[in-house]
Amino acid sequence: MFPVYQVVFFFFAALVVAASAMVIFSRNPVRAVLFLVLAFFASSVLWMLIQAEFLALVLIFVYVGAVMTLFLFVVMMLNIDLSRQQEKFVRFLPFALLVMVVFVGTLVAAYLPHHLPDLAATALVPTADGVSNTEQLGELLFTNYLYEFEIAGAILLVAIIASISLAFTGRKPNTKVQNIEKQHAATKQDRLRIIKMQAENK
């Protein structure tokens, strides 16, 4: 039988690793953002492979749709001088590679099957019953984790207020605005004038 799961996994895992390597090595930030989008797409395929469909789609919607667009906007809004980006790139490279090799080596050594015989013995299994991932997640989210869900909403509200108040530098001069206070304070005497006049003859 053709090992379709393995082929899909290894293809997209290689894609994720290559794209994320390109994110840190590419000089042009726009290209880095686009490679990051590719990495998110590939890893959402990997999540789908283990029945986390809802989260995989949320990853695409939230990350690729919103956050990465925001990054792209900012990258294109700031006029970054690319020629000055080249310096001192290589200086920290050996150190970074050393740290990365030690870190990844330690983790991979810890994940080897003979250290975790219990974990490695069984592969990830698909959910047997007909309950979809979204349904399962929603049930948990709105019962056991309702309080945390509301906290997440509050965090988003705080983020909105914070980023608007950070980036907002005051209204431009000569823009037309409503003065609500003045509108409410208006009385009948200010606006209405009754004129006595003769009735018209037909």
Binding site: I50, L107, Y111, P113, L119, A120, A123, L124, V125, P126
Partner: peptide, 9 residues
């Protein structure tokens, strides 16, 4: 299917 190790690595 894919072993858990692969995802962790």
């Amino acid at each position: 299917m894919i072993p858990l190790n692969y995802y962790l690595i």
